[in-house]
Amino acid sequence: MITERHLNLLILAGLILVPLWAWAADEPFTITLATRAVIFALAAAGLNIALGIGGLVSLGHAAFFGIGGYAMGILAHHAQSYTALSTWPFLIEGTKSMPVIWLVAIVTSALAALVIGLLSLRTAGVYFIMITLAFGQMFYFFTISWAAYGGEDGLSIYIRNDFPGLNTLDPIQFYGLCLAILCAVLFATARLMRAPFGLALNAARQTPARVETVGLDPTRLKLAAFVISGAITGLAGALFADLNRFVSPTMFSWQMSGELIVFIIIGGTGRLFGPVVGAATFVMLEHWLGGLSEYWLIYLGGMLLAIVLFGRGGLIGLLTRREGGA
């Protein structure tokens, strides 16, 4: 058994070394798989703030993933077709600039999370799950009928957006960019978990009434967490759209929301690197078992069942000993 901190460092080393090996061995597909895992990890890391720390079981986080994806898709679509996004009251044009797209993805996802959170946090428990699911499905059906941006068929992007100083078409460089963002988000999450806000959020998850008696508003804490969480998942959506150069309503589907929850449960709910382990495990199983059988999700289901029944701390919990105990 090793400590969680040491395991996290090992995982980080793996995230750096495996794609570097694939690059040296000229295995670009492995790098693409790793990029997919890192982007899923980023999306789940966002959800982990709401679910893992705040205890908010959101079954609608695909809404933010999709909003981020469509932010990228719409801006890039207008950039590649040289058409304006809007001409009145202001001229708004498309862009191929990743930083601008990320900013738009973060802001729109955060705003959506604010509105959804304000309404959803009036409920709790199963009602919260259902209302977030309903919001996610609203976005899903809206984009299906949004003919201007491909409707059900989605939107293909023929360009890879630009990042200053990088060739984003080079798989290893795009992977490095995604990994850097994931590391920045994990670092910020680690700081947040130890900051008074994160501690209060954790306490609010355990016992909202006790938190109130020390002068903290649990609803406001959870709303802030939900907004931060939505913004990060939205950023992951923009990167996912750039990876695939394609966006479609499936990014909003409830299955996507469910997968994000599965990543967290497999890795370890509330664990800093839980989403990374969960997403990497999912992508590896999807690749290896998916090649053997189209029913590979049965094996994933069995694994999930075993973890829920026998390893509440997820794979990280099974491999590590808890720090800060007696």
Binding site: P196, L199, A200, N202, A203, Q206, V211, V214, L216, G324
Partner: peptide
């Protein structure tokens, strides 16, 4: 409060600085 009711999963330090 009656019955102490600390934040069980937080450490002593975290209980003290959370609020």
């Amino acid at each position: 409060p009656e019955g102490r009711r600390c934040f069980a999963d937080l450490t002593v330090r975290e209980n003290l600085i959370a609020a």
